[in-house]
Design a protein around this nucleic acid. Structure first.
Lengths: 227, 227
DNA sequence: CGGGACCTTGAAACACCTCAAATATGGTGG
DNA sequence: CCACCATATTTGAGGTGTTTCAAGGTCCCG
């Protein structure tokens, strides 16, 4: 069996994929815009799930917290991402903005009705759910099986995959080290040391704490996949 | 906010939930039975996904392996569970039998067609997908944030929740310590020590390696939730 | 330029892992 | 039914990676 990513990923579907103009128009008629400043919450864990969202610009973070204050970041979200999948009447995670962001807000009730009338829309949501699940499984594998520096590579690869194809593999880390640590199940110090180690080994350059250049993508990928 | 499980769970839906007799009959007309002995594979990671399954009896395990041999167990599956959710044309995990098991095999193509004709069936699959996702998020939280003995409690709670409501909280661990370790992102020795520690603290009794009695369910739950 | 938040680095503690040996378990054939 | 065997589990000792605690440095914004 040839070397390959554990999960083969199609281009990420959006809820708009393959919709005709009429459907898009109907969808847009339901939606409202919302702006978020860094640190602001889109919604809170345990509050009623009355809307779903599509991220237009900026970056969001999805996290789950226990009452003891332990926090797990579940995902970092990029433009185009659909937000609000839940099997409850309540959100079971919090979503907040890492950067100035804008989202489309779609009332859940109306969205569900529209899905029944536009099968392609329902299909899109189904596919997105599948992608989210695949992402969650990747994360389970990473947290269960990978070492600290491999987990950091796992994140770097995820972020660089979101970038438009380009020669220079420069990655903007908009989130803080604490966010990264809580995403990877580590501490900020361990994350910091992992970056230092990768830098020292020549796999990356750290221009500033939030601007990383990947110098050896092949090696980063190998570590990311732990393959 | 009152103490509560991180994820509130409805009674687990099956694909049969709310179907009328005609729909069930049509579904059954598609399905074949299959028997598995312990250790036997239902299907392998990276093989074409041509069927989905419903576990009738026994216990299955879903796992993902990398080519270096690192293995992550994603789930243990109980009767009624639906198996084969994938967003690929290939399964991205292996499913094998822990005990003698029987499954219903449903050809994927025909199942998809039937879903279009029976909206309730499609709805059931959607709900199941949501449950699987919720389970995956729980696991991410556990692997990212919990200590070894808390992860073991997390598993004990998951298994005891599957049991019919009864006074004595006796849990059968059908899987090996290695399976448990690979599920929780630990080693067999650490799992074994965690059991010993819980036993010594009087939270459980270990009758044999595969038969555990939970003596202090409240405490186990507290550790499981890390709340 | 000053201050607060964020990040990095170091040293020591700790949890978990690795390696090794002893013990228990469960299945099989006598 | 029992003895035996292979396999699985437990336990111990020592090593490693990650965390914790602490200090110093850097960046960014007013």
């Amino acid at each position: 069996m040839t070397r390959q990513p554990l999960t083969t990923r199609q281009p990420l579907p959006t809820i708009y994929h393959g919709l005709d103009a009429a459907a898009v128009a109907r969808l847009n008629s339901l939606t409202g815009q919302r702006s978020l400043n860094p640190g602001e919450y889109l919604f809170l864990q345990h509050t009623p799930a009355k809307s779903v969202y599509v991220l237009e610009s900026g970056m969001l973070m999805m996290e789950r917290s226990s009452s003891t204050g332990r926090r797990q970041v579940m995902a970092f979200m990029h433009p185009g991402n659909y937000i609000g999948i839940t099997h409850n009447e309540h959100y079971d995670f919090t979503v907040s903005a890492l950067a100035k962001s804008t989202v489309c807000e779609i009332p859940l009730k109306a969205f569900v009705v529209l899905q029944d009338e536009v099968p392609q829309l329902k299909e899109n949501v189904r596919r997105i759910g599948g992608n989210i699940l695949a992402h969650a499984f990747d994360q389970v594998f990473a947290l269960g099986q990978k070492k600290a520096h491999e987990r950091v590579c796992f994140l770097l690869k995820q972020l660089s995959d979101r970038l438009p194809q380009q020669r220079c593999h420069s990655v903007e880390l908009i989130m803080t080290r604490q966010d990264i640590a809580d995403y990877l199940g580590l501490t900020i110090e361990t994350v910091s040391r992992a970056f230092s180690k990768l830098k020292q080994e020549g796999l990356i350059d750290v221009y500033s704490a939030h601007t990383i250049e990947i110098r050896d993508m092949a090696m980063i990928e190998e570590l990311a996949l732990a393959d």
